[in-house]
Design a protein around this nucleic acid. Structure first.
Lengths: 201, 201
DNA sequence: GTCTATAAACGGATAGAC
DNA sequence: GTCTATCCGTTTATAGAC
């Protein structure tokens, strides 16, 4: 089957990246279909050929792409046979690198959940997304509980500790600037040191 | 001068609280003047009597109220003559209690900065707000730097550590539920323990 | 597959009565 | 000080040409 040169056809993924970028800059409510379309050299009407349900579809696709990326990795790490410390450090690194590598998708997970909750007639999509988000948080709770049980970690309030960690990670999407003083790698190292220190003294 | 019973007159502050609440639920872009007005039993047009410049004025007033509250307290604590550990713990408590006591105002500081940045012809207001926000962050940096210098704290990357802390605090406005398992006091205790641990081992 | 044109709805802001 | 009525710009989504 002959394949067209990628750059000659506007792909679904290109539109998704454009949407995530506009959501980051203007928010879901502030983003217009024209904003998104112009990023891929289309007009607003043309987007409906790729996403028939329009803006709501774009939001759901961006959010699902985001959560799928981070959830798959941490679920895998959780199941490995290593110490809780090692696995937690790797889970932190996975999350942080994901945020710094896909800032606009990471920012969507932080700032556009409210828009998701407001979507009418999207109960099913909403519930599936929220379930995955809970599963993501659950992975972090689990590894910390295992570390406490094994004596690697001190006693902490696990839900609060995990919320604090994820808050710190999520906030990276607000202040991180690619090409700045710190690479995503460097930040993930700092976060890992910080939270492991908080658990192991 | 005779004073009218407070509950008979819609006060500026009531409208501000209403606006903060609607911003929290729908976001600045998603909030309508009618939404805000109905919370104080007014119609949209009536709000312009209290806030002539309309929605933008409401946003600026909410954000300035929020930053003023938290900044004043931490600046004061920073200047006290106590150990860095003591002052940091109190600064954390101050910030966390402020967030849990005024969730919608705290949420505005997290979620509506982008709306502020998008405001046209508001450079002056924007700059004054951002300056105060930087000052707030500076207080936390300062106390940690002092603790490192005095040997109370271990060496950390101060900017990253502070961003992580503030991210954890800010995120509280997303998950905190008054009347839930944890009081604001309990959360502030946990946060203090956590970050002091991360600094003192 | 993309365009133009347009329908239909919405929301911020204003004017003027009370 | 609050209301009602209304103007006007914006935006989503659709229809149909190319």
């Amino acid at each position: 089957m002959p394949r067209k040169p990628a750059e000659l056809t506007v792909q679904r993924d290109d539109i998704l990246v454009a949407a995530a970028g506009v959501f980051q800059e203007r928010g879901y409510q502030g983003a217009t279909m024209a904003d998104i379309a112009s990023r891929v050299n289309l007009t607003a009407g043309s987007l409906y050929h790729h996403f028939p349900a329009g803006k709501r579809d774009l939001l759901l696709a961006v959010l699902n792409t985001s959560i799928d990326r981070v959830l798959a990795e941490v679920e895998e790490i959780l199941e490995e046979s290593a110490t809780a410390s090692d696995r937690l450090r790797r889970m932190i690194a996975s999350h942080v690198i994901n945020v710094t590598s896909n800032v606009s998708f990471g920012a969507a997970m932080v700032f556009e959940i409210r828009a998701l909750l407001d979507l009418q007639d999207a109960e099913e999509d909403r519930d599936r997304f929220l379930k995955r988000r809970d599963a993501f948080e659950h992975c972090f709770r689990k590894v910390i509980e295992q570390g406490i049980k094994s004596g690697e970690f001190r006693q902490v309030d696990v839900p609060v500790f995990v919320k604090a960690m994820l808050g710190a990670h999520n906030w990276i999407s607000v202040w991180y600037r690619p090409g700045g003083r710190l690479s995503g790698q460097a930040i993930s190292q700092q976060m890992g040191d910080m939270f492991l220190h908080a658990l192991t003294c």
